[in-house]
């Protein structure tokens, strides 16, 4: 692979604008993708894929800020709209037309909720983006796939699935990697939440008999999968914690779909 020798480029919008260039797509990294140690690896995997395929992209860098989704779900509409309005000013300032993001919560907010505040963009989740790169032949599943025949189960993110009806793109990617995709009983529109949404990630759970991620991880482990595929930074944390709770870190891995693609490409 030549990628080892070519350094990865992560241009910022400010740099491109200074050169008078515009990218084809803005990669919206999101807070988890920027700060969460585990999810930073997903951000890097995705950037490597963008570099390898030759996509002309850019990030906002330090000019990016939270979409405001957790504040809105928790009931703090003021804070959400402050964040959203400031973000829209930045995005419109750069004339952004198309955005790709790995976070379903950012995706949902940017796509469905910013228009009411005057921010109109074509917003794509990275699962859809990667699927179209595969369909266009720009990512070619190679011989000797590392995931060929591996049992993998996909955990639907609520904000990708029910919220936006994206069920097939992440599955199509895993199938393109020749993985042996096994479904949990509660999947697609019946998928069970990981327990992080609606602001739950940022507080202690209410009193109950069980944590939601434990309920979900039991179902995932019940499929006998060797790897759990996710497409959301919060699902990633919840599922990883679940695997640790069940002391199965040694034999069950949790990866984002971008990481599967990057690994399969030897990136």
């Amino acid at each position: 692979m030549t990628t080892e020798t070519t350094p990865c480029q992560v241009p910022t919008m400010a740099e491109l604008a200074a050169r008078g260039e515009t990218p084809d797509v803005l990669f919206w990294v999101g807070c988890a993708g920027s700060f969460d140690d585990r999810y930073k690896r997903v951000t890097i995997a995705f950037v490597k894929i963008l570099n390898a395929v030759g996509i002309k992209f850019a990030v906002l860098g330090t000019e990016e800020s939270c979409t405001g989704d957790p504040a809105r779900r928790a009931g703090n509409e003021f804070l959400f709209q402050m964040q959203a309005t400031m973000n829209i000013q930045v995005l419109d300032g750069y004339g952004i037309k198309k955005i790709v993001t790995a976070c379903p919560h950012c995706f949902n907010t940017l796509k469905n909720e910013y228009p009411a505040l005057g921010g109109n963009y074509e917003v794509v989740h990275h699962s859809t983006f990667l699927q179209s790169l595969i369909n266009e032949g720009r990512i070619k599943p190679q011989d000797g796939q590392p995931f060929k025949g591996r049992r993998i189960t996909f955990h639907d993110s609520c904000y990708l699935g029910r919220a936006n009806k994206i069920y097939e793109a992440p599955r199509a990617i895993l199938e393109a990697l020749d993985a042996d995709l096994v479904e949990m009983k509660r999947s697609r529109s019946q998928g069970l939440c990981c327990g992080a949404g609606g602001g739950q990630y940022f507080k202690e759970p209410e009193p109950g008999k069980k944590d939601i991620n434990i309920e979900r991880i039991e179902e995932a482990l019940g499929t006998g999968a060797q790897a759990i595929a996710v497409a959301c930074p919060f699902c990633m944390t919840m599922m990883t914690d679940g695997v640790k709770n069940k002391e199965r870190e040694a034999d069950v891995k949790v990866y984002d779909i971008a990481e599967f693609v990057a690994q399969a490409q030897g990136l």
Binding site: P7, C8, V10, T12, V29, C31, G33, S34, F35, K40, T43, I44, V47, V59, G61, T62, E64, S65, C66, G68, P70, A71, A74, N76, L79, M82, Q83, G199, F202, K203
Partner: peptide, 26 residues
């Protein structure tokens, strides 16, 4: 989480100046 968002534009206590640090290794 609200005050982190107000002050750091992220739900956690990280400095906005560090938001792009993930790219450093690349």
């Amino acid at each position: 989480m609200f005050s982190n968002l107000e002050n750091n534009q992220a739900p956690w206590k990280f400095s906005p100046a560090d938001r792009f640090n993930w790219a450093e290794g690349l």
